[in-house]
């Protein structure tokens, strides 16, 4: 058997796995970029010890209890506190002053994973005096990720390693003011958790989640094919208040999305957009 033949079998297995997940459980990964999806499925084969993707599909079909683990494996890239400090500094400089004029601010973080970036945002909002009037909706496709995010417990090392990024993001206190460490774990201060609501939301199949002044969706759309990326951008535009802000990951590319026309660029380097007013 040639190497090329072996690859074709894997491509078929990936298709069947995706189809099984959709028809049995309603999770639709058909419009995810195949290269990363295939890697994640291979990782699941290793974790589950099934040997082949075909056998993983078999397990998935017959054992519904394993579903959360599968969804978690297909969706969670663990993030970092203050990843891309320049993006957070940009929010502070270009977005927060516009939010001050609203008596109540809604922020939607779509694809919050385990919450590192949500809490980073909550810290900067606190320092800007905006947190009290803000409600943050943090959504993700994975229930496992959401429960971890809501618990607010992280390896102590993750927070220690983030102090420099926090300062580069424009943090004005000490990052250690915002968590309590015990042994090798740190718990986020409950003050930061008060105005955060964690909820399940699937960008593939669900619709507008809330009316938001700012939407963050960082390094999520990079896993989507062009049609799905475009769907998500359109949904974000529909969710934003007039001249609301959209913050994406620093390396995302919207040039193939027609819905991009509804936005003007605020800062290209940090991929910060603003909804164009409708005349």
């Amino acid at each position: 058997m040639t190497g090329e033949g072996a690859e074709d079998i894997e491509a078929i297995e990936v298709d069947l796995f995706v189809e099984a997940l959709r028809r049995r459980y309603g999770y639709d990964f058909r419009q995810y970029n195949r290269a990363s999806l295939t890697r994640r499925i291979r990782n699941l084969v290793t974790t589950f010890g099934t040997g082949t993707i075909g056998q993983l599909t078999d397990t998935l079909l017959h054992d519904a209890a394993r579903l959360p683990e599968v969804i978690s494996g297909l969706s969670v890239p663990v993030s970092e506190f203050f990843r891309d400090p320049a993006s957070f500094a940009c929010l502070r400089r270009d977005v927060f002053p516009a939010l001050v004029s609203y008596p109540q601010v809604n922020i939607w973080q779509a694809g919050c994973a385990r919450g590192e970036e949500v809490y980073s945002l909550a810290i900067l909002l606190t320092e800007a005096g905006l947190y009290e009037r803000t409600r943050i909706y943090a959504t993700d496709i994975s229930p496992d990720s959401l429960s971890r995010a809501a618990a607010g417990i992280f390896p102590a090392r993750d927070l220690r390693d983030s102090a420099e990024r926090y300062r580069n993001a424009g943090g004005t206190h000490s990052l250690s003011d915002y968590y309590h460490s015990r042994y090798e774990f740190s718990k986020i201060d409950t003050q930061l958790m008060r105005n955060i609501t964690f909820a399940e939301h699937n960008l593939v199949t669900d619709g507008v989640f809330c009316e938001a002044h700012l939407i963050l969706c960082r390094n999520v759309l990079i896993y989507f094919t062009n049609p799905l990326q475009n769907r998500a951008i359109g949904m974000f535009a529909d969710s934003l208040v007039r001249t609301g802000f959209l913050c994406l990951g620093a390396r995302e590319n919207l040039e193939f999305s027609p819905e991009r026309q509804r936005f003007q660029i605020v800062n290209a380097a940090t991929q910060l957009y603003r909804l164009k007013p409708i005349y």
Binding site: S36, R40, P77
Partner: peptide, 9 residues
């Protein structure tokens, strides 16, 4: 034969 990116571990 297009590029994609990931922030997986």
């Amino acid at each position: 034969r297009r590029f994609s990116l990931s922030v997986d571990k």
